[in-house]
Amino acid sequence: MGERDLRVSDVEREHVGRLLQRAVGLGMLSLGEFTERMDTALAAKTRGELNAVLVDLPGIRLAGQPAPKAPQFVYAPRPQFGYNRPQYGPRLPHPVAPGNVIRAKLSGVKRNGNWHVPQTLLIESFMGSVRLDFTQAIMSTQVVEIRVDDYLSSLELVVPADATVDLNGLDLIGGSAENKVRTGPPMGPLHLVVHGKVRFGSVNAKHPFGTQWKKFLNGA
């Protein structure tokens, strides 16, 4: 029996899931490709089947091998909020439609109730606040990518009980990121992949108020 025929564990599947998430953040995979490969990884029984989803991804390494190089950032000044700012990469794997951009300049923006969530959201904020409540939202896909370009602002993500959130792709400069929900590969109805630049701001992912009490009372 060769090494490719060895059985794999849930820990190995989750490790590959994290590598695929990193590939999305680096622009190597679209979200559609990510979902397809994640399904294959979760169904994989042998090491050969599991490794097949990574073979064409440069810089992605399995456990025990050297870590991939950090992504290179692209400096591209552009006018925004009345002055020029650098735009940092990596760039999105596909363009963001104008209707999928949320901007908050010295103001607060909220999305809650039965709002339609696109596959990709771009959030640009300057001294503002953005609150996205996904608990009753209408989803078009399981995996949602949120690209953040933040100055002195706050981003709050409220997700359902079974959702997962990945904040590992955020680049913080004098800022903070707090994840109070489950991370790792997508297992439930919603998985948020959040990446981008946060400058002297904050990102907070959490469940609705009272979720933990409900789980306790239900014996979970």
Rank of each mutant, 00 (worst) to 15 (best):
M1C: 07
S9H: 11
V11P: 02
V11N: 08
E12H: 06
V16W: 00
R18W: 00
L19Q: 01
R22P: 00
A23D: 04
V24T: 04
G25C: 14
L29R: 00
E33T: 02
T35E: 15
T35S: 15
D39W: 05
A41M: 01
K45M: 05
R47N: 04
V53G: 05
V55Y: 00
D56F: 01
P58M: 02
P58D: 05
R61Y: 10
R61D: 03
A63I: 11
G64T: 01
A67N: 08
K69V: 03
A70F: 08
F73V: 09
V74H: 15
R78C: 14
N84K: 09
Q87A: 09
R91Y: 13
A97T: 04
A97I: 01
G99P: 08
I102W: 14
R103L: 03
N112M: 15
N112L: 15
P118I: 07
T120S: 15
I123F: 07
F134C: 10
Q136S: 12
S140M: 09
S140T: 13
T141R: 06
Q142W: 02
V143T: 14
V144D: 01
E145V: 03
V148G: 04
L152M: 15
S153D: 05
L155M: 13
V159Y: 02
V159G: 04
A161M: 06
A163L: 03
L167K: 03
N168M: 05
G169R: 00
D171C: 14
S176Y: 06
P186C: 07
H191S: 13
V194L: 08
R199A: 10
N204I: 11
H207N: 07
H207Y: 15
T211R: 09
T211P: 02
Q212K: 10
K215L: 12
F216T: 09
N218V: 14
